[in-house]
């Protein structure tokens, strides 16, 4: 019996290791680019862990949201707010975060507008990329509404660049973005803008795991990511994502988003 159990255990563990896991990635870019970024990293993880991981990319964020809400991914890389939602819906847990960077929304106005106080934006049109964009939109709207009690008319213009252009072209009085994308704008655009408000900081996109994945596998994968981040030889594999310094993520870090009342501003598809 002991042998049988041992055998079964062995069998199970071999089944356990021979099983293929899925890895969903939020569609920040088109799938080709996502493949180019993620495939080498996941291959390295598989090599180190012996766990087979398959990269799954989707066309749009709603599809991605639907997918993780249905628990289709064993592992996934998503934005902090998605991780909160995913935890609520399927119990996804954060494994890895980027300790090198944090997420903070910024509110920009036209330099020539004469606005330097949030109160001047009462009832004004403010451009945001999308309703659920975390730093630029969710955090910002929550802050403005909950911390400052401002009533605004949000205008969703798809991209961060459009947000900044709307502000620069005086199409809207202000716009919500994040520091990273603001810095990426052309010099002449940046020169026309000024930041008048920054939101509270939160950790950046985490890699999460579905609770159905065996915890030793989760640990192994987590360990592998950390190892790769520390190894000089493989560190560069994170650069494209981008994750500067992978570290262990905790649920609590992301749970504060719920506490900040962001769900009220989340728009379900």
């Amino acid at each position: 019996m002991k042998y049988v159990v041992a055998m079964l255990c062995l069998l199970q563990s071999s089944w356990l290791f021979s099983q293929e896991y899925t890895f969903g990635v939020v569609p920040q870019y088109e799938s080709q680019k996502l493949n180019a970024i993620w495939q080498p990293l996941l291959k390295q993880v598989s090599e180190q862990t012996g766990v087979k991981i398959e990269l799954i990319t989707v066309k749009s964020i709603p599809v991605f949201e639907q997918a993780f809400a249905n628990g289709e991914y064993d592992f996934a890389y998503m934005n902090p707010w998605h991780s909160v939602v995913a935890h609520e819906k399927q119990g996804y847990l954060p494994l890895i975060k980027d300790a090198g960077r944090s997420l903070q929304g910024v509110l920009v106005v036209n330099k020539k507008s004469g606005i330097d106080n949030l109160s001047q934006l009462e009832g004004a049109e403010i451009a945001f990329p999308a309703p659920n964009a975390l730093g630029a939109s969710l955090l910002m709207r929550a802050d403005l509404a909950l911390l400052y009690g401002l009533k605004i008319k949000p205008v969703y213009v798809q991209t961060h660049s459009s947000v900044y252009l709307n502000v620069a072209l005086n199409s809207t009085k202000a716009g919500g973005g994040v520091l990273g994308t603001l810095k990426q704008q052309p010099k002449n655009l940046q020169q026309k803008l000024k930041v008048i408000y920054k939101t509270r900081e939160i950790s950046r996109h985490p890699i999460v795991a579905h609770p159905r994945v065996a915890s030793e596998i989760q640990l192994k994968v987590q360990r592998a990511f950390l190892n790769i981040g520390e190894s000089d030889e493989h560190k560069h594999l994170f650069a494209g994502i981008p994750i500067i310094e992978p570290s262990i993520a905790t649920l609590a870090e992301y749970q504060q988003l719920t506490e900040w009342g962001l769900s009220a501003f989340y728009v379900e598809n």
Binding site: Q158, H160, S161, L165, N166
Partner: peptide, 9 residues
């Protein structure tokens, strides 16, 4: 129409 000026640019 949608003020997606980035795309316009």
């Amino acid at each position: 129409l949608t003020r997606q000026y980035a795309e316009l640019y």
